[in-house]
Design a protein around this nucleic acid. Structure first.
Length: 560
DNA sequence: GAAGTCACG
DNA sequence: ACGTACGTGACTTCA
């Protein structure tokens, strides 16, 4: 969103390339760039690049659109080996046995002394830039047959490449944020935080840096001696994480206050005070960046700022969502999320008829699971039974152990073990499916999603039971989490296509793994609400329904 | 830059 | 006997 255009390097033949530089003056840059319009807008010429979303966004900010076929080496390699890094220097080293010029040798290390590429000697600039273009072209020649060999071409061409442009649109669009509201939240938080600090220091009888886990541990366990045998972290420091403190909280007032302080300071530092600084000067909106090649399962990630982890679980935290608002009074926010998509997928992929039946009947899956495992009628399921069933349902997706389940609930190890056993008796096919996934991974060295997205599990046959168990859990989890990611990606592509084709004023703004957030023009709401629901629910055909819940509101909290 | 912590799905 | 639920990103401290 801020980058200047210093130069563009081209290569269309191995070992050869050309470099075009641009002046600092934006208008002059625009005039020169116009000469390349026939190239960038050509529907015939394929543009090959590394992380093209970045280039497309920069060009867009200079009023240049990129059309026609594209090939992205980063995305190609993400499908070829999702667990590896996908930087150009790593790829060049791995696949071309070639050491690239490091950018640091040209502009220096990160920090205030780092130079702009514009100030680098033109010969060095040219060498660096042309090398980039040359290598990218050479990698493409290697990755194209590799995608084909692993049956990834369809996923690549029909999902990841079209999604690249959709994400570029969403990032350029940004989202409107009520900065005044955040400022007032910040003042409220400051008061409560200072109050808590005063009380904590007084109860501890010493002032220290509350934000330092090291100092906090010493105060709690050396100075106040709250327990005989404090738990330690792997570096030998006292552990003071939430699990440890929650256990101590009922016995010591100070601990409850520390937990509250931790919660409030997190909200203030990470969200309330940080988000206003992320508002772009020119657009007045917050523009996240989605990483399409980071999560090994096929999910997206979001950074600078991360808009996929805005609080919702606590009352104080969810207030922050009120700061995310529509473009103006003619718009409203629409949030649409898949209901239980991962459990629906495990039901579908395993073919378990009992679990599928619950979804076909439109039942609340956790309630229905509770009724079955605790052997009571649906109407008589207690809150606690439903909660335990919910924990097991999610645990199964991750490969939970009796230890893990008893940790997450108030059940003993023995009770947890029995609950898991009853669970598998309730959904008998699920157990077979898990075994089948692990067997497949052992035989093939990878598992795959409904669209053939692979994850390689190199430790699946390891002698070391710890790393082997890790891969066994991934053999079950990756296809579930990854297939859910596949489905929402299809929906995003199809929705964006309609929004653009029919020139809607409404925009898709955010993706949060199983949720999409839209800025909807009020005149378009009646058409788009059912359209979006349809596109999401029908993105991929399963033998059970996909269900999408949606709501509108004047802010993200109301819409959710 | 590692470690500890904690926010989300 | 061992370790113990998947996937992320950001902030703060501290060596």
């Amino acid at each position: 969103m801020e980058a200047e255009l210093v130069g563009i390097a081209f290569s269309y033949e191995k070992g050869k390339g050309y470099y075009v530089t641009f002046p600092e003056d934006r208008d002059k840059t625009g005039i020169i760039l116009q000469l390349f319009q026939p190239f960038f807008e050509s529907m015939e010429i394929e543009k090959i690049g590394q992380n093209l979303k970045y280039d497309i966004k920069v060009l867009n900010n200079f009023d240049m659109r990129v059309n026609g076929p594209i090939f992205d080496t980063m995305l190609a390699h993400y499908l070829i080996n999702p667990d590896m890094r996908h930087n150009l220097d790593v790829l060049a080293e791995t696949y071309l046995n070639y050491d690239t010029i490091s950018i640091e040798t040209l502009i220096g290390k990160k920090g205030k002394n780092q130079k702009s590429m514009r100030d680098v000697d033109l010969v060095e600039q040219t060498e660096y830039a042309v090398e980039d273009a040359d290598i990218t072209l050479q990698l493409k020649e290697i990755f194209t047959p590799e995608l084909e060999k692993n049956q990834l071409s369809k996923l690549y061409n029909e999902i990841e490449i079209p999604l690249l442009s959709v994400l570029a649109d969403m990032e350029l669009e940004g989202i409107n944020v009520d900065v005044d509201f955040l400022k007032s939240l910040s003042e409220d938080l400051t008061k409560d935080i200072l109050d808590l600090e005063r009380k904590i220091y007084s109860e501890a009888d010493v002032e220290f840096n509350l934000a330092s886990p090291k100092q906090l541990g010493e105060v709690l366990f050396d100075h106040l001696k709250l327990v005989d045998k404090p738990k330690k972290t792997k570096t030998g420091q006292y552990a003071t994480n939430e699990e440890v403190l929650s256990y101590l909280a009922p016995k010591h007032e100070i601990v409850a206050r520390i937990l509250e302080w931790r919660g409030l300071i997190k909200l203030k530092n990470t969200y309330v005070d940080a988000l206003p600084n992320e508002v772009n000067n020119k657009t007045g909106r917050i523009h996240t960046t989605y990483s399409q090649a980071v999560a090994a399962t096929g999910r997206l990630s979001s950074n600078n700022p991360n808009l996929q982890n805005i609080p919702i679980r606590t009352e104080r935290g969810r207030q922050i969502r009120k700061a995310f608002i529509p473009r103006n009074k003619n718009y409203t926010l629409l949030a649409a999320d898949y209901s239980q998509i991962e459990l629906r997928l495990i039901a579908e992929l395993s073919g378990d008829e009992v679990m599928k039946e619950s979804f076909l009947k439109g039942e609340d899956i956790h309630r229905s699971t509770a009724a079955k495992v605790f052997n009571v009628p649906l109407e008589e399921v207690t809150r606690e039974q439903r909660s335990h069933a919910k924990t097991v349902n999610f645990g199964i997706i991750y490969g939970v152990s009796a230890f893990g389940l008893s940790n997450q609930t108030n059940l003993s190890r023995k009770e947890a073990k029995e609950l898991i056993e009853t669970y598998y008796e309730t959904y008998p096919t699920l157990k077979k499916y898990i075994a089948k996934q692990i067997d497949f991974a052992r035989d093939n060295g990878f598992v795959e999603t409904i669209l053939g997205r692979r994850r390689y599990l190199k430790n699946i046959n390891s002698q070391n039971s710890i790393v082997r168990s890790g891969d066994e859990r991934n053999a079950v989890n990756a296809p579930i989490q990854g297939s859910a990611a596949d489905i929402i990606k299809i929906a995003m592509i199809n929705i964006q296509q309609v929004l653009k084709r029919d020139n809607y004023k409404s925009k898709m703004l955010l993706q949060v793994h199983d949720e999409l957030v839209f800025d909807i023009h009020k005149d378009e709401l009646d058409i788009l609400k059912p359209l979006i629901k349809y596109e999401m629910e029908n993105a991929y055909k399963l033998s059970i329904p996909l269900d999408v819940e949606m709501d509108v509101g004047d802010n993200w909290l109301e819409a959710h």
